[in-house]
Simulated scan of single mutants.
Amino acid sequence: MLEVSKLSIRFTRFDRRLRQVHTEMIHNLHLSISSGEILAVVGSSGSGKSLLAHAILGILPSNAQVSGDIYFKGEALTPASQRRLRGKEIALIPQSVQYLDPLMRVGEQVRQSVRQGDPAVLQRKAFNKYDLAEYVAKWFPFQLSGGMARKILISTATVSGARLLIADEPTPGLDDLAMTETLSRFRQKAEEGCAVMLITHDVEAALTVADRIAVLYAGTVVEIALRSDFTADGEMLRHPYTKALWKALPSQQFAAIPGVQPAPAALPKGCVFAPRCSLATSECEEFAPEPRKLRHGEVRCLHAT
């Protein structure tokens, strides 16, 4: 359904001396999602998760330069095709509730997203699934709580009939019941033949529903693993960062590693994780590893076995 190949994104800005400065935020990124699959994209803040979503939809700011290829159903995405598919075949559940139109009642916003079927019926069904009272349809966004606004955004995407859903941090602000319902709804959409990209920093939530997990670190996908690889002490995982991420969960060892994720303007020359990696060698510091297949997954690490 979706294939991203060699994607790089950089931004141009002017510094205090009015000199152009180029900062690359995503580097040579590869991933794919099949029909009927949920791919979770996980990573810490600043790793490039939302930028990836915006690049697929073609909604990056004007100072962004994008290289590489993005294919949807085998068709290369261009600015023209992105405009044609956006909100129809490809739908975004955005991270910020500010994407809601502040001047339009929320029920109307959901109904406008319907492409097939009775908009009023589908809007009522969506509200019922997410425990939203019917009178909420007449409210404006400023009248909603944060959790209610997020439910409206999810409703808008799920009634659209899109074949690719990109959910950017869809669960913050939701109670446990609503979060479980939302994730199960994504599972249902996948079983209906959709492809779902679930962008989240909540690894444990992702593992309840995703088929595969793509791990981002400093703008690079360092590993793509099966959900079943996240088990025991993480011996089935391939990349040192993924193993550290797994062991840092409260349900595991709650163990931290030294150092911090590097800033985009201060990336190391070789492997982006080398400064924090106990396995790093001089070769890691000089050369950025290419992605390679390993044990039914993918990894960027010279030492992964």
Rank of each mutant, 00 (worst) to 15 (best):
E3T: 12
V4G: 10
V4K: 08
V4T: 08
S5Q: 01
I9A: 00
R13G: 02
D15F: 13
R16Q: 09
R17F: 11
V21I: 04
H22T: 14
T23E: 12
T23W: 07
M25C: 06
I26N: 05
I26H: 05
N28M: 03
L29D: 07
L29E: 09
L39R: 01
V41W: 08
V41Y: 11
V42I: 09
S45P: 03
S45F: 05
G46E: 10
K49M: 11
H54W: 01
P61D: 15
P61Y: 15
Q65N: 02
D69M: 07
D69G: 13
D69V: 09
D69A: 11
I70L: 12
Y71T: 06
T78Y: 10
T78Q: 09
P79G: 01
A80N: 03
S81V: 14
G87W: 07
I90E: 10
A91C: 09
L92C: 04
Q95E: 12
L100H: 14
L100C: 04
D101Q: 13
V106A: 07
E108I: 03
V110A: 06
Q112E: 15
R115D: 13
R115C: 09
K125Y: 03
A126P: 00
F127Q: 04
F127H: 07
N128I: 00
N128M: 06
D131C: 03
L132A: 05
Y135D: 12
A137N: 08
K138S: 13
K138V: 12
W139G: 01
F140R: 12
P141Y: 04
P141N: 02
K151M: 11
I154A: 11
A157I: 14
T158V: 08
S160H: 02
G161A: 09
R163P: 01
R163N: 14
T171C: 14
P172G: 15
L177A: 11
M179F: 06
E181M: 07
Q188R: 09
K189N: 00
E192S: 02
L198M: 05
I199Q: 05
I199D: 14
E204V: 03
L207A: 15
V209Y: 11
R212Q: 12
G219W: 15
T220G: 07
V221Y: 00
V222C: 01
E223A: 04
E223L: 01
I224R: 06
A225D: 09
F230E: 13
T231W: 06
M236N: 02
M236E: 14
R238S: 05
T242A: 09
A244V: 07
L245V: 00
L249W: 14
S251H: 13
Q253Y: 09
P262G: 03
P275A: 03
L279S: 15
E283C: 01
E285H: 13
A288Q: 12
P289W: 14
P291Y: 06
H296K: 10
G297W: 15
R300Q: 12
R300V: 14
C301Y: 13
H303A: 07
